[in-house]
Design a protein around this nucleic acid. Structure first.
Lengths: 198, 198
DNA sequence: ACCCACAACCTAGAGGCCCTAGGATAATCA
DNA sequence: TGATTATCCTAGGGCCTCTAGGTTGTGGGT
């Protein structure tokens, strides 16, 4: 009997496609097995279970996302960098709704910590904020604000949370402008407190 | 055989409790039936199915949320109103993670449109922004920014997305400050375009 | 007070999912 | 080539949704 030639990598890649096609919640071991012409029990040789697969997918998508953002931001600073970051972020979220949804799931904090993608994301984000000349804890606060707004906007948009009356791209551009403005005139902390790289 | 006395209202209320206790994804018809000491098939007399229950829960939670926000905002304007809105929003999201998660699910747009909770939310949100003297389409853009940031922050926070290094409440206060600043110095549209109440 | 109709609940069962245990076989390597 | 290992299998348990159709408690009409 010919073998399907499954590897963890192929499994995760197929899961990513499946997520974008049918939505993250329906990336299931059964569906994946079906796609490989294999019984679902067979997948347990490659993956510990559904949760394992999903976290792998999350890290995979997180890597893809930052691989899109990094070149967009490269060589830019200030407002340009912010706009590039935002644009790449949202583009990925819209093009790959399933993968993007995967990045939102709760993951063991330790797994996140030593994921190269996450380190790279932190580097690039904090690097982008250098132009605004913020000190801790304002830096961390600013990062949290950016992440929140970007994520919130994409989540709401791809969930159909915005009405159709106003162009969604235009609102996004405005939001980025507003964030740039907020970063430039940031309400600074007078005294320095502890840091805590997000 | 004594009857359990189930109604749609009791069902949704129990689902809300269950959501907060064990997480939104595990609010299931079986679990709910178990809680009422009833077979799961019996619930189909009150609810069309799982999706029906979940959307009811979403609308219910949305109503609770705005019922928290409304009194907090009442009688305030400008920064005060914004801070009150933000505080009530986040407090609800943190106290009732399951219910809050329910509000995030994708719902038939028509169901949302004629939900009184959503109308009330729109009223209060746009009312709160009156102090900033924005015209359309900036108004809608501002609403989208606020919703995005609030939702994104709460989603990330309750998903454990923020490191422990910096106080989460302090970052939130800073974000609200930054939003207030952005609203005050909003990059206005020169020409008027179409409106589209979100 | 009684009967009827309806709503509330039941059992039975199909189908999908996750996951475990243990068996068969293809690929690989000594 | 023969042994080992990784890949895939069948079998089965548990939990889930949902449908079809049967029974029984309850309230309204007479």
């Amino acid at each position: 009997m010919a073998r399907a030639g499954i590897t963890v990598e192929r499994l995760v890649a197929a899961a990513a496609e499946l997520a974008d096609e049918t939505g993250f919640p329906s990336v299931t071991l059964s569906a994946l097995a079906r796609r490989f012409g294999v019984k679902d029990a067979s997948l347990y040789s490659h993956v510990r279970g559904l949760e394992d697969l999903r976290t792998r997918l999350a890290l995979y998508a997180g890597g893809e996302l930052i691989d899109r953002i990094a070149p967009a931001v490269a060589g830019r600073a200030g407002r340009d960098a912010l706009a590039a970051f935002a644009g790449a972020y949202r583009a990925y979220a819209l093009e790959h709704p399933g993968r993007y949804a995967a990045t939102q799931i709760r993951i063991d904090q330790s797994l996140i910590a030593d994921s190269p993608a996450m380190r790279r994301t932190a580097e690039i984000t904090y690097g982008m904020l250098r132009a605004y000349d913020l000190d801790e804890p304002d830096l961390t606060d600013a990062v949290r604000l950016l992440r929140s707004t970007f994520h919130g906007y994409c989540a709401l948009e791809s969930a159909g949370g915005f009405g159709a009356g106003r162009d969604v791209q235009a609102s996004w551009d405005k939001a980025v402008d507003a964030l740039h403005l907020a970063l430039e005139h940031w309400p600074r902390e007078t005294e320095r407190k502890n840091t805590g790289h997000d």
